[in-house]
Amino acid sequence: MEPILQIENLKTSFMTSNGEVQAVRGVSFSIGKGEILGIVGESGSGKSVTSMSILRLLADTAVIKEGTITFEGKNLIDVSKKEMRGIRGEKISMIFQDPMSSLNPLIPVGNQVAEMILEHHPDRKKEDVKKEVLELFSRVRIPEPEKRYKCFPHEFSGGMRQRVMIAMALANKPDLLIADEPTTALDVTIQDQILHQLRELEKEYGTSIIFITHDLGVVAELCDRVIVMYGGLVMEEASIDDIFEKPGHPYTMGLLVSIPDIKQDKSVRLMPIPGSPPDMTNPPEGCPFAPRCPYARKICARELPEFIELGEGHRTRCFLQYPDAPADEHNPFRR
């Protein structure tokens, strides 16, 4: 598949009063046309910072230290601010977790979406644009689009606002949509509706989607391929089936067993991952997961493992997958 966006060795840090926080420490991945890529990780894993780096929407304290982000043959890290503005919303758009703070409370939602189109296509007729917005609204299942066009964001529920955000993000039929935890703040029934819609829209428009979440369940429902991030690094990358059927990294395994299944036997204890995530001002020298890993070896605390190919499109960053790793009872992959 032809990749539409390729990230090579991205490193982003925040300069804070407590020192440098290495939020992203060398992330590489690509996304193909019409693909839904899930990025899974907990808070502080660097998943949001990665996505913000793509659109260069980072706070002033953040610095992209290294790496390339190639989109349409251009490195997005080097393009001018003006060019970047042309790309945002037109070719790559983004949906955030909190739809309320991403909408201007003083402007009717319809106008905000129309504004998005006019911004990039100033020569279009206002009536045409309005018609298009109304169609977008019905496409994302906003009931009574005519009436809703003139409503203000506060008159909408959380789910409705997120739909407006999706409509706005899709207004210019972008090539890539980045969704940063768009359903985390929503209820399950609404989340279900939104996920369903994203899937339909992907089929219809062929838009590639980067879907960032901490919920493996959501990933399973929506994505084609998954990247698991931890401590600012990609730990594993695989197709959706591989991730769930033969996870190649202890962290992924830990994530999978730590959430109860809806059919889980109640007498069986949950298997939590012990400890807390690493602090990125002092990232561990070796594998960031080593202090919490039940299978960790001495080498894991000293060196950072390189990627190992496990199969087509399935790579993982774990010493225990190395060919010379011992096949003892503490190696989950060589039993």
């Binding site: 907990e42 808070s43 901490h214 919920d215 493996l216 830990g254 994530l255 730590s258 959430i259 109860p260 204890r269 949950l270 298997m271 939590p272 991952i273 012990p274 807390s276 995530p277």
Partner: peptide, 11 residues
């Protein structure tokens, strides 16, 4: 809480 932490609390 993060997914990896939830089980700790439940246990």
């Amino acid at each position: 809480l993060d997914v990896s932490i939830q089980a700790q609390v439940i246990n």
